[in-house]
Structures are given as C-alpha cells and as structure tokens.
Design a protein around this nucleic acid. Structure first.
Length: 241
DNA sequence: GCGACAG
DNA sequence: ATCTTGTCGC
C-alpha cells in the first residue's frame, strides 16, 4: 500500500525503523520528537576524517522494491575502499518529513555489510533542516552513533537569499526564524545543494566537508558512488525478491 | 481552508 | 524516487 500526498491519512500497517512494529504517521512523528534530544548538533565533528561514507537508495519502477547502498571513500583520494548493499521493500509510505522510516532499515542493513566503520556519514536528504528538526541524517547519526551530515538536492523547509554564483558561495537556510542549514553552491553557476547538520557535527564543518567532496560535480562523490552502487544492485537483482 | 512537501 | 524527449557540450 503506497501512501503519498494523495492519501496523507493512510493505512496503519507501516512499521518503524528500529524494530518491526507498525507505526502510524502520528506515532512516527512522536518517535522523531523523542529521539531529537539525542542528536548532537554542535560537533564540531571530524575536520580531517580518514574515511567518509555515502548512503543512497534506488527504487524499482513500481516502488515496491529497493536497493540501499553505502560506499566508503578514502577522504583524501576519494577512492572507494569499502561497500555495503541491501535489497528489500520500503518500510514506510513516502511521507515528506518521515523519510527515515522508509529508508532507514535498508540503509542500516547496508551499513552492517561494511567491513570498516566510516568516520562520517553523508546522507542523501536533510538533517536539521526538517519540520521537526530530525531528518534522515539526524536519525542515521543517532542510531549509528556516527557523525552525520545531510545533503539535500531540493529544500524541504526554510527560505534563503542568494547564494552567489561561485563554488563555495553560500547562504543561511532559515526556518521559523532559526538557521537550520546552509544553501551551498558546490560548482560555479550550478544550482546549490542544501547542507544541514545530522549528528556530532557543526554547520561550518559540514559545509567544509561537502566542499571537500565536490571537486568536480555538484553532488558529493560519496553520494554519486552510493547512487551508482544501489542502481547497479537494483538492476542485478531484478526479478528477484 | 488550501497548497507545499527530502527521496 | 522513476519515467520521459530532446539538446548541448566535452
């Protein structure tokens, strides 16, 4: 049963990312409100991590099957030094603001496949820049205990002005009067990305880490390699599961 | 009340 | 997220 904008009050047979317990939308929101206090939004976090992990999920056409991937890169050379994947089903309907409940189980399974423990997680989605200040990056960080950064391709909450047109230019992302992230230009003349803190990280450091991961493309190398891996995994497992 | 809404 | 048709550029 798929639930999206067209069916916001949807069925109750969803389940949570930590166990296998059915959760309603209201209950999932309550989980976020409860876990929020456990996120470290100050850091400052590692300024010179040895390894950085990217996480991403790809969906089959019907949206009934997914593949999650984690790639671990040498932070210096940006070479992939470890990988982990998992295939399965979305654990929750698509509800903006409740993303973690959809992708977290598969991402955690992929993380379990790693042979090394990365020093930083780069998540495909927001962290603090979330309606209840607890996006996927915060959830992943709190659950794993690892420093985490959220890098979104489009905004979920907040407003901003600018940023300038050059790589490195940025502007505060403000929601309800508070700075929840930064709109960052990672390439000259290319639309910006939305950086926010997930866990055990400060915003300034998060921006620096993202710039270090975007020497050539708009999106971090971590995200790009994880995207390639989950897509390849989805294709390789087509007709399975 | 209505629209908007990470992936 | 995924699909879709074409276009521009290295």
């Amino acid at each position: 049963m798929t639930v999206g904008r067209a069916e916001p009050a949807g069925p109750r047979e969803w389940y949570d990312g930590s166990g296998h317990q059915a959760l309603t939308v209201a209950e999932a929101m309550a989980v976020q409100d409860r876990l929020r206090s456990r996120a470290d939004l100050v850091g400052p976090g590692p300024c010179r991590p040895a390894t950085v992990a990217g996480l991403d999920v790809a969906y089959a056409e019907g949206g009934d099957r997914l593949a999650a991937a984690v790639t671990v890169l040498d932070a210096e050379t940006l070479e992939v030094v470890d990988r982990g994947v998992s295939v399965g089903r979305p654990a929750f309907g698509y509800v903006p603001g409740l993303f973690a409940f959809r992708e977290l189980p598969a991402l955690l399974a992929a993380l379990d496949r790693l042979t090394i423990r990365p020093e930083l997680l780069i998540c495909d989605g927001h962290g603090l820049a979330h309606p209840r200040r607890f996006g996927l990056a915060c959830h992943l960080g709190v659950v794993t205990g690892l420093p985490a950064i959220g890098v979104g391709k489009t905004p979920l909450v907040g407003t901003w002005t600018g940023p300038g047109p050059r790589r490195g230019d940025s502007a505060p992302l403000v929601d309800a009067g508070e700075v929840v992230g930064r709109v960052l230009r990672t390439r000259d003349g290319v639309r910006p990305v939305f950086v926010s803190v997930g866990h055990r990280m400060g915003l300034d450091n998060a921006v620096d880490r993202v710039l270090a991961l975007t020497p050539r493309y708009r999106l971090p190398e971590t995200t790009r390699t994880a995207d390639g891996l989950c897509r390849a995994t989805l294709a390789a497992t087509a007709g399975t599961g």
